[in-house]
Write a protein that binds this DNA or RNA. Structure first.
Lengths: 146, 146
DNA sequence: TCATTCCTTGACGTGAACGTAAACGGGAGA
DNA sequence: TCTCCCGTTTACGTTCACGTCAAGGAATGA
């Protein structure tokens, strides 16, 4: 069950443009098989692509993503290389954890704003909006300690 | 105790360049007081700036950050505007939560890679590295279940 | 007074990540 | 055979977030 994909299939499935896929190929992030000129993407290409897209969503540059992928697919290298990879991975993890903290703080701030908006709207409701707004669930004020 | 800051102070404190601060001003994200030509940043400018920088770290564009800040500092507007702001905030929260999931998945993957590296290194240790690597704490394999 | 330092306003440059034609090939169906 | 449709390469264009001069003003210390 070694499925293959055309470029069009992948673009639709993962909501990217073909230009983007070719760009990633130019950057060395993908290297699909060629049937003549046409690209044939295999399961592992698709897997790599989802990793790339997720990396992009969490704010990595293509260069960073490429580095990670390169380190990832280099289990055949010596102990020195592997130790280096390990170090890089740990660094990345630290960066991501920091980013999570930033996100938590942003979320806390936004939830606070939502709560404030709710309070204001409750106070000043002059029956402008007879429909009850969906009661906020989980938007309690939690001081962003630390 | 209404402290003020010169541009240089802020750049050092928050590790940004003056060009960046002026750029944010051009983009309408900051509007420090002017003493003659010179900029004088107040506490609220500093606060806005930290919000901007955090927004940047979590991947927002300057346009998105500006929108949020604009909605934020608009409690004086009518109920309609406030409801709109609330909606936007809730949307942003959803985006951030999604991003957190992406980060969690990336972290899980990286931790897995670290563990695999550790295992490989333990297996193949030919006394190439007599020093024991710091034992991984918290890098257990946790299936990235949904 | 002079040099240094910090600040200012332009304004052009840059790197990343694609977008957007333009021009061509190849197979499939009418 | 003709026309779509999908795919390809080449190459210039664009947006964002600043970087990097250039040229000048104001204050400060020697």
């Amino acid at each position: 069950m070694t499925r293959t994909f055309t470029i069009r299939q992948l673009t639709k499935e993962l909501s990217v443009t073909s230009r983007t896929l070719r760009h990633y190929e130019d950057e060395g992030l993908l290297s699909p098989e060629r049937r003549g000129q046409a690209r044939i993407y295999h399961g592992r290409d698709r897997a790599r692509l989802t990793l790339i897209l997720r990396g992009r969503r969490v704010g990595f540059s293509l260069a960073e993503i490429r580095e990670i992928l390169d380190l990832y697919n280099a289990e055949d290298q010596g102990a020195a290389q592997l130790e280096y990879s390990r170090k890089k991975f740990v660094e990345r993890i630290a960066i991501l954890e920091k980013q999570k903290k930033d996100i938590d703080e942003s979320v806390a701030e936004l939830k606070l704003a939502v709560t404030r908006a709710d309070n204001w709207l409750d106070e000043h409701k002059q029956l402008t909006h007879p429909q009850p707004r969906p009661k906020m669930s989980g938007y309690s004020v939690m001081p962003a300690g630390e």
